[in-house]
């Protein structure tokens, strides 16, 4: 698969009152055309900041180092106007709360046509036709009259559909979805996931899906990256990651999620401790304070990413087996 997006040694830092905070440290990603990449992590894993950096949308006190190449063209260091042209046309991003991305004072129609008039220099009547088509493609009924509605007149799930429609107007090559279903009910989530799959098949859009929900990852992703404390812990294709994972954190995550299709256990398995505080990351591997397989050197040194098999990498010193056999029953 031809690489569409190539991220190398990307780090994201924030200047804060407590000094420099390293939200993301030296991560690599590749994204091929039409591919679905799942990015998993908990609070403070850097999963959102990585992709905000790609979009050029970091907060004022943040900056990124390393390299982000789209079709071989470096994105880090582009001017705001170059970035703004690229966003929308090549890269688009939807967020957990669509209400924060929609203007409550403008109709959906105005917000949708604005995008086309700005990026594509379309006439208003053409832009409206296009907006109606986009709403149809995300299964919003009666799209013509819906253009006159304001964001608050839609339910949470409908708003997220509108956001997707708005972001698909320019048929971007990459759609970054940052926890788009976390705030939604499971029924609405199922509908949105089906919709994203459909759009990908229709337009060949590559999707980056950021979430903490492994169930969602299992359903939508082809490849999965697991982040913790701003570091890449493991990356593999979805089947390998769920069935032949090699990192203690991946193991802990998978085991602490109860499954609806299996018998219920008396006790849930957990990962002890709390998610990392990025301002006070431990020395060495950020997961070491919570890791069941911790060794002395883990607290001294961050393990390098090693290639286990083609397309499967992990960063961990532990060379023995993980404990899944004993706890499988």
């Amino acid at each position: 698969m031809a690489e569409l997006l190539e991220i190398r040694d990307l780090s994201v830092h924030f200047r804060t009152e407590d000094g420099l905070v390293h939200a993301v440290s030296h991560v690599d990603f590749d994204l091929g055309e039409g591919e679905v990449l799942g990015v998993v992590g908990e609070s403070g894993s850097g999963k959102s900041q990585t992709w905000l950096a790609v979009m050029g949308l970091l907060a004022q006190n943040g900056y990124a180092t390393g390299s982000v190449k789209l079709h071989g063209r470096e994105l880090l260091g582009l001017s705001p106007s170059q970035l703004s042209h690229m966003r929308g046309v090549q890269l688009a991003m939807i967020f957990q709360d669509p209400m924060t991305a929609l203007n409550p004072y403008l109709t959906i129609g105005r917000q949708m046509t604005e995008v086309l008039q700005w990026h594509r220099k379309m006439r208003r009547s053409d832009a409206e036709k296009r907006a109606v088509k986009a709403l149809e493609s995300v299964h919003i009924s009666d799209p013509v009259s819906r253009l006159k509605s304001y964001p608050h007149e839609f339910s949470g799930g409908m708003r997220q559909r509108v956001m997707i429609a708005m972001n698909m107007l320019n048929e971007p090559e990459i759609l970054i979805c940052d926890e788009p279903t976390t705030a939604l009910d499971v029924t609405v989530q199922a509908q949105i996931l089906a919709l994203l799959n459909e759009l990908r098949e229709r337009f060949g859009t590559a999707i980056v899906f950021i979430t903490h929900d492994l169930g969602v990852i299992a359903q939508i992703a082809e490849r999965v990256a697991v982040l913790y404390g701003g570091r890449m812990m493991e990356q593999a294709d979805v089947y390998t990651l769920f069935e032949d994972y090699r990192h203690p954190y991946t193991e802990g995550l998978l085991r602490s999620v109860p499954r609806m299709d299996e018998d219920r256990t008396e006790r849930l398995l957990t990962i002890p401790g709390n998610p990392p505080n990025l301002a006070m990351l431990p020395k060495g591997c950020p997961f070491s304070p919570r890791c069941a397989y911790v060794e002395a050197r883990c607290q001294q040194q961050m393990p390098e990413l090693e290639v286990i098999a083609p397309g499967h990498v992990r960063a961990c010193f532990h060379s023995g087996k993980l404990g899944r056999q004993e706890t499988g029953a």
Binding site: V186, V188, A190, Q191, L214, F242, L254, R259
Partner: peptide, 27 residues
């Protein structure tokens, strides 16, 4: 039935075989 069918299963083989089309409409 619809609520239970909509819960994602953290297993890519199972997840890809399930029919989520049972979820219809809006509240």
């Amino acid at each position: 039935q619809m609520l239970i069918a909509a819960v994602p299963i953290p297993d890519p083989r199972v997840a890809r075989q399930r029919k989520v089309s049972v979820v219809r409409g809006e509240l």
